[in-house]
C-alpha cells in the first residue's frame, strides 16, 4: 500500500512536470509574442526587446522554465494582463468560490444519488428501478442552460423567491447559491445514480449475494453488509473524478448566473489572451485532475481488499 502511494505520488509529480513544460513551451517559446501581449499590440519591437531584457527573458529556455516553475510553486504566477493585479490575487478567491459550489453540490448529490442508485439496482426491473432510471436519464439529457433558464423563469421571475444572479457582490449569500447548485445537481445526479444502479445490479446478481441470501441472512443485512460496500466501489471512483468536471466544466452555469468561479475566470482569460492567468488556471486544473485521480486510485485500492493485499 505504502509503495503504491509512493509510486502514485511519483508519477503525479512527473505528470505535473511534463504538463507544465508543455504549457510553458506553448505560451512562452515565442518571447516576442509574450512581450506583445504584455505591452499591447501597438508597442514597437524595441520596446518589446527592452521588456524582455528587463524581465530576464533572454536567458536560455530551460533556465526560464525552472524560474517560472519555481515561482509557480510559490504561488507567484505573475501579473494578470486584464485585471492588472497579481494572478494569485484573483485565482485563490475564484478557486474558493468553485470549492464552495462543489461542496454544496456534493453534500446533496452524493447521498441522494447513491441512495437512488442503490434503491434502483437492488431489484432490477422493478417499478422503483424503472422510475428512477427514467427520471435520471431525463434530467441528465436536459442541457444545463435549458434547466437554468427554466428554473430562473420559475423561481426568479415567477415566484420571485431567489435572486437571478449569483455574483455575490454584497458578500456571501446562500440564497444566491441555490440555483447554480440546483442546475448542476439536475445535470450530474442522474449520471452518478445510473453508475450506482449498474454497479449495484451487478453485485445483486453475483454469486456471493446468492450465498448470502441462501445463508438465511435478513434482507437488510444482505444489502447493508454484503452488497453496499462492493457496489459503491465503482461510483466512488466516478464521484472523485467529478471534481475535475466541476472545476472547468461548469462554465455554462457560472456564466449564466454570473457566478465568480474558476471556470469563468478561465473563460475570461482565454477570451482576453491573458496568458499568465491561463497558465495558472491550466496548472491548477491539471493538478486537481491528477490529484483526484490519485485519490480515486488509492481509495479504490483501499476499498478493494483483493488489490490491497496483493
Amino acid at each position: 500500500m505504502l509503495i503504491l502511494i509512493l509510486r502514485r505520488l511519483g508519477s503525479m509529480v512527473l505528470i505535473m512536470l511534463v504538463v507544465s513544460l508543455i504549457l510553458f513551451a506553448i505560451f512562452e517559446t515565442d518571447k516576442l509574442a509574450v512581450a506583445g501581449k504584455v505591452l499591447g499590440p501597438y508597442s514597437s519591437t524595441e520596446q518589446r526587446e527592452i521588456w524582455l531584457e528587463e524581465n530576464g527573458y533572454n536567458q536560455p529556455f530551460f533556465t526560464r522554465y525552472v524560474i517560472w516553475a519555481g515561482n509557480a510553486m510559490r504561488g507567484d504566477f505573475g501579473q494578470s494582463l486584464q485585471l492588472k493585479v497579481p494572478v494569485s490575487q484573483v485565482l485563490w478567491p475564484r478557486l474558493a468560490n468553485t470549492g464552495i459550489l462543489a461542496l454544496c453540490l456534493f453534500a446533496i448529490m452524493i447521498p441522494l444519488s447513491l441512495f437512488m442508485g442503490v434503491l434502483a439496482g437492488m431489484k432490477e426491473g422493478s417499478f422503483q428501478d424503472r422510475a428512477i432510471t427514467v427520471f435520471s436519464v431525463l434530467t441528465t439529457s436536459i442541457p444545463e442552460f435549458a434547466s437554468a433558464t427554466l428554473l430562473t423563469a420559475v423561481f426568479v421571475f415567477g415566484l420571485g423567491w431567489l435572486p437571478g444572479t449569483s455574483s455575490m457582490t454584497a458578500g456571501f449569500s446562500f440564497k444566491e447559491l441555490v440555483l447554480p447548485v440546483l442546475v448542476l445537481l439536475l445535470y450530474d445526479f442522474g449520471y452518478i445514480t445510473r453508475m450506482t444502479r449498474a454497479s449495484m445490479a451487478e453485485v445483486m446478481n453475483s454469486q456471493y449475494i446468492r450465498t448470502a441470501i441462501l445463508k438465511g441472512l435478513p434482507y437488510q443485512r444482505v444489502i447493508m453488509r454484503h452488497a453496499l460496500r462492493n457496489a459503491l466501489i465503482a461510483p466512488f471512483t466516478v464521484i472523485v473524478l467529478q471534481l475535475n468536471w466541476l472545476l472547468s466544466g461548469v462554465i455554462v452555469v457560472e456564466v449564466f448566473f454570473a457566478y465568480k468561479g474558476f471556470g469563468k475566470l478561465l473563460l475570461d482569460a482565454a477570451l482576453f489572451g491573458d496568458i499568465f492567468v491561463i497558465e495558472a488556471c491550466t496548472l491548477v486544473a491539471v493538478f486537481v485532475a491528477v490529484a483526484s485521480q490519485f485519490i480515486s486510485d488509492i481509495g479504490y485500492t483501499y476499498l478493494n481488499p483483493r488489490i490491497r493485499f496483493s
Binding site: 454469486q207 446468492r210 478493494n304
Partner: peptide
C-alpha cells in the same frame, strides 16, 4: 471463489 464475498 465467486461464492464468497470478496471484500468481507
Amino acid at each position: 471463489f465467486a461464492a464468497l464475498n470478496p471484500s468481507l
